[in-house]
Design a protein around this nucleic acid. Structure first.
Lengths: 337, 337
DNA sequence: GGAGAAAATGTAAGCGGTTACAAATCCATT
DNA sequence: AATGGATTTGTAACCGCTTACATTTTCTCC
């Protein structure tokens, strides 16, 4: 493998000059620059990234901590983040951690060891309700961090998130405005955004003036969140005598499960039962009727995360937290009664 | 930031000894080892990865070239690959390239510049029919490469793939054995695996003795492969007078589109129309009836890719190409007439 | 206790770049 | 042609680690 000496020798200049050309420093004459670039092109020389990293103390790499890359929602985020970082000439190191705090911490450690310039924590799974305990671990790594879809108070931690509270409230209200009056809320976690959604749902019920007795909620833990299992549990609820005419959920999978249960409950969707999912993922178009869902602006959030991170790395001051509004996307599953 | 000198000073040993402990060389006494490890733990020292990379000429990093991380199939692969590489103490650099050869090549360049130890090309999109032209570019980077789901003849290029030919043939035959006799084949690309599937489909028709006139094929290019668009095109086919009673596809999305078109064509699924998708992705359980699909053993393939790569990096001899059989997973959409 | 081999440790030369600082060159003015 | 400032180039120190080789220590056995 060629190194910078080889190039400098071939070009008849010093290594400093070659280095300057490589980093296009202004202190090189146009003539020399062209000469060196020609030699580089001809020889096929590629600078050694490790040596470069040693000297510059960065390899322009961002760590992406993803609890589950196979999750459709997170994988979209992954794609968006990677693309945006690449546009800014940063490479992305991917670590799929799982959702356990210990796994998350191991991931953070691994990324620190790799000397990334910054880290993105994807998803609020990383921030449980025990925010304080969590923050400490995150703070120890003195690297800028950005969290997608959760918020955390700490010095070098930034975040971009959707107003899940407002979006879930609006989803519920869009149903009550159409005459639905006995909501069921299906949710899978109470991490940061899970809490927001949960509270937003109840806020909506409150605004719509729905009596407590007409409100049902059902937790289906993430590890049980398969279409079949959701069907089973929703149907069980129905058999217990619980009644509902509309469903708001914290995830599209839950909504698909509810939709597929409708038949067993002898309910027509929409009409007897209206359903709204969350995330507006591609499966919304796979069902019949198609699934209404909350678009939580993933693309924008990712773009924002990248902008923030790049800004920080350039030494600019950046807002600690950015919040976008979600949007209810109406499809067949939630049209009027 | 602490460096190895600080640690050596604090421990009262030379930096060589610290380095030996770090790389757990056998040439350190147990006593010294413990002493140094204690100092490291107490000080919170983390070795500089760039310096380490410079000396060792590797940072134990694998490049993952993914045409589209938001694709459910590829994101599952991503997750599986990352996990398996991590288990072998390799970090993964993710590059989402898109499917254009030029994008692919830019990705390869970017990964080369980062000095990864090996690269995985995810998916046969990277290998078009112009195999020779492609191979040349791949060969220039003198880094071990592994290709998922495609095959390519070249010195340092390895591959693990599913027998897509056989799997598609079997899918078709499973339908004809149930009495279906007028197959429609929906496909989205003719890259490496696309060709295999296409030929497998025709092979199946041949074996089943289906006359040419009863066979329909329809290409729906990947960029148009949305449920709505597939519906539109399949229905258009029907209106043109083409008739079919079963559908084999190269991707689950196509199958979902076909399934959702059945209503418009006044066909009952199954019975009037049977459908089998490809990839056995999670959307198969979102539809009613649920979608039969070909499981192409993604987990195994990924595991194999990682094993091969690790083996190569350890200097072992590894098989150039490994092929697994696919499996038709029967669900509601393809039971007997 | 001392010779010799084995084990542990230290010294110093890389690895391949960046960059502060020094030196050389260039150019316009006088 | 000499002067002096600006521009270009070179020299060498450094980034933090690995490792070949040299040196020291430890151990074994007579």
């Amino acid at each position: 493998m060629l190194n910078i000496y080889d190039v400098s020798k071939q070009a008849g200049v010093s290594i400093a000059t070659v280095s300057r050309v490589l980093n296009n420093s202004p202190h090189v004459s146009a003539k020399t620059k062209k000469l060196v670039m020609d030699v580089i092109a001809a020889s096929g020389y590629v600078p050694n990234a490790f040596a470069r990293g040693l000297g510059l103390r960065t390899m322009k790499t961002i760590g992406l901590l993803c609890p589950d890359a196979s999750d459709p929602y997170l994988s979209s985020a992954l794609s968006a983040l990677e693309k945006a970082f690449r546009d800014n000439l940063y490479d992305c190191l991917l670590v799929c951690t799982g959702r356990q705090p210990s796994e998350r911490d191991a991931g953070i450690l691994s990324l620190s060891a790799h000397h990334v310039d910054g880290m993105v924590l994807m998803g609020s799974s990383f921030v449980s309700d025990v925010a304080v305990e969590n923050a400490m671990i995150l703070e120890t790594a003195d690297i800028p961090m950005a969290i997608l879809n959760a918020s955390l108070q700490a010095e070098h931690i930034y975040s971009a998130r959707c107003d899940d509270f407002g979006a879930t409230r609006d989803a519920l209200l869009s149903l009550t405005q159409k005459g639905y009056s006995r909501p069921l809320y299906l949710y899978h976690a109470l991490n940061y955004s899970g809490q927001q959604k949960f509270q937003g749902f109840h806020e909506g019920c409150h605004i719509a003036g729905i009596p407590e007795s007409h409100v049902t909620t059902l937790l289906i833990p993430r590890e049980n969140m398969t279409v079949a299992e959701v069907q089973r549990r929703v149907f069980a609820l129905w058999q217990e005598g619980k009644r509902f005419d509309c469903v708001v959920t914290s995830d599209d999978i839950l909504a698909v499960g509810a939709l597929k249960t409708a038949g067993s409950m002898h309910l027509k969707v929409p009409g007897d039962l209206a359903i709204i999912g969350y995330n507006n993922s591609s499966i919304c178009q796979c069902t019949s009727p198609e699934l209404s869902s909350v678009d939580n602006r993933l693309e924008m959030l990712c773009q924002q995360i990248v902008n923030t991170m790049i800004g920080i790395l350039q030494g600019q001051e950046m807002p600690r937290e950015v919040v976008y509004s979600g949007k209810v996307i109406e499809r067949g599953s939630s049209i009027a009664k």
